[in-house]
Simulated scan of single mutants.
Amino acid sequence: MTTTASPTTPSAPATSPSARQPAIALITGGSRGLGRSAALHVARSGDDVILTYRSQASEAQAVVAEIEALGRRAVALPLDVAATATFADFAARVRGVLASHWQRERFDFLVNNAGSGAHAGFMETTEEQFDQMVAIHLKGTFFLTQQLLPLMNDGGRILNVSSGLTRFALPGYAAYAAMKGGVEVLTRYLAKELGARGIAVNTLAPGAIETDFGGGAVRDNAQINGFIAGQTALGRVGLPDDIGGAVAALLQPGTGWVNAQRIEASGGMFV
């Protein structure tokens, strides 16, 4: 009886940080809060970072120094994600630092993290507040990604940061959550259109985190903090490192088949 040999499956490539060339992640809003934690976790995973900041250059340079102390390379660039007219110039600066610091033409990962909050009841939300949320969270994410895609490697990743507020509703966040909902829909469209390039696109949706976001209410107001902890399955409010670790994990080589998904990192909030 004649038998047919099964095709040999090639060995999986080495995926430890020391066995591969470091990837380069571009993280917007990487000078503070969740972005800072993400940048440091990515560096600890063995990859390099381009981080952006809006106005606090000293904070950004401090993060760069921390990353360099970990043995990785980093550059901080100014960027206002609401100022779409500056995106072409920003992309040119990214191209420049890729050449000067890495002798490369492209980066690998884009984390659209930068943002700000607006807390106002639906009836009290002004058109100016609404337009600001559109510019920062939806329009900015859309057109910055568009400008940077020519500089991304095929097979890379895009991670758009959303919010748990797109799943559960709390009064005062209608405008902010509506924009994040738009980002989640955009994520699926990007995944569909960029599949031919092997670029996986996902949403990471944090729950309430102890940062200075929104004036630091979750971190500094004991009543708010206690309420959220009581509504979270793991019994506490999230910390920046909970999200930074999730970002780094979703950029690792073994998670490339995760695509077009919304991943919530909330500790089980309101389940």
Rank of each mutant, 00 (worst) to 15 (best):
T2Q: 15
T3W: 09
T3G: 10
A5W: 13
A5N: 14
T8E: 14
A12L: 15
P13D: 06
A14S: 15
S18W: 15
S18I: 14
A19R: 14
A19T: 11
Q21C: 13
P22S: 03
P22Y: 03
I24K: 02
I24E: 00
A25I: 04
G35S: 10
L40I: 11
L40N: 02
V42M: 11
A43D: 06
R44C: 06
D48E: 01
D48S: 05
V49C: 00
I50C: 02
R54Q: 01
S55E: 07
S58E: 10
S58Y: 12
V63T: 08
V64Q: 06
E66W: 00
I67R: 00
E68P: 00
A69S: 02
L70T: 04
G71Y: 08
R72C: 00
L77R: 00
D80P: 01
D80V: 00
A82D: 08
A82E: 03
F87R: 11
D89I: 10
D89S: 14
L98C: 08
H101W: 09
R104Y: 04
F109I: 07
V111G: 00
N113M: 03
A114T: 07
A114C: 05
G115R: 09
S116A: 10
S116K: 14
H119P: 01
H119Q: 05
F122V: 08
E124Q: 15
E127W: 12
E127Y: 07
E128T: 15
F130P: 06
D131K: 06
Q132K: 15
A135N: 14
A135F: 02
I136S: 08
K139Q: 04
Q146I: 04
Q147G: 11
L148D: 06
P150Y: 08
M152F: 12
N153S: 11
N153A: 09
L159I: 11
N160P: 08
V161H: 07
S163H: 02
L165R: 01
L170C: 05
P171E: 02
G172D: 03
Y176I: 05
Y176F: 11
A178K: 14
K180A: 05
L186Y: 13
L186N: 07
R188N: 14
L190C: 03
K192Q: 10
K192G: 06
L194N: 02
G195W: 05
G198H: 08
A200P: 04
A208N: 12
E210T: 04
T211E: 14
G214Y: 08
G215H: 04
G215C: 09
G216W: 09
R219Q: 15
R219W: 12
N221K: 09
A222L: 15
N225Q: 14
G226L: 12
I228C: 14
I228Q: 10
G230P: 13
Q231M: 13
Q231Y: 15
V237A: 01
L239R: 13
D242V: 13
G244F: 04
G245C: 08
L250W: 04
L251I: 03
L251E: 00
Q252M: 11
P253G: 01
G254Q: 08
T255G: 10
V258K: 00
V258D: 02
E264K: 13
E264M: 09
E264I: 09
G267T: 03
G268Y: 06
G268F: 09
G268A: 09
F270A: 11
